[in-house]
Design a protein around this nucleic acid. Sequence first.
DNA 1: TACTTGTGCTAACCTATATATAACAAAAGA
DNA 2: TCTTTTGTTATATATAGGTTAGCACAAGTA
Lengths: 127, 127
Amino acid sequence: MLIEIDFSSDEAIYVQLQHQIIMGIATEVIREGDTLPSVRQLADSVGINMHTVNKAYTLLKQAGFIQLDRRKGAVIAIDVDKIQAHAEMKRELRIALAKGCCKNISRAEVHELVDELFDEYTRECRP
Amino acid sequence: MLIEIDFSSDEAIYVQLQHQIIMGIATEVIREGDTLPSVRQLADSVGINMHTVNKAYTLLKQAGFIQLDRRKGAVIAIDVDKIQAHAEMKRELRIALAKGCCKNISRAEVHELVDELFDEYTRECRP
DNA sequence: TACTTGTGCTAACCTATATATAACAAAAGA
DNA sequence: TCTTTTGTTATATATAGGTTAGCACAAGTA
């Protein structure tokens, strides 16, 4: 999986790493059971410090996206907690949608945008 | 408009201020033309520094939610740039929805959530 | 044995956040 | 006119977060 970091971005490197790996799972570039490069390998290939990668991996583990195993390295393993995931999404969407509402973006336009984004994700999202 | 700050939150105070004011506009607690308290008044009433409020106001001005006038103070004035607002929302939703997709939250469930959130906003969102 | 793995620790550097204090010109009100 | 309040700018300080560096260890691999 190709990972690219924008060093001029105002987003922290470890946050960018998390986002790219989550996008990789959603778009099925990487799938359950696949392994990510080790913290040292990824740090070397991207050109950042080992601890920055470790921070991203640790947070992804806490969020239930990967599991860290000394034998296998970082393995994609989704721990589905729909209650928590739903609550987290609601919290994140509340402000984003309010901003759009202030800017006269209609409910229908948001629905269109959701469909557009979901079409990017090839991963099967079960109801 | 009542503003409450959670000092134990990991969100910066000036970010919390922005969010609460944006939510206030979306829920029509404050409307176009209404004035916000001055930076010093709000700082005093909330118990924070003047510069923290000023930072929030300046960013809200740059984002096109308020206008700062030496005579009237901070006035709610929406500068609608739908192109930019749409792009910004798309960027913010991309990661949030990808997370949900990984956690098996379906497209339909997201649509429900969008409707649920939009029902909180009483402001008329024109298409 | 030699190597790599995740993990833990300390230290240093830079930036971001928040505070305090001060000062200024423009506008409002008395 | 005088005073007060306004947004704005500036400087300084303290704390927290992000990133890097180097070192070390136990567990697992080749």
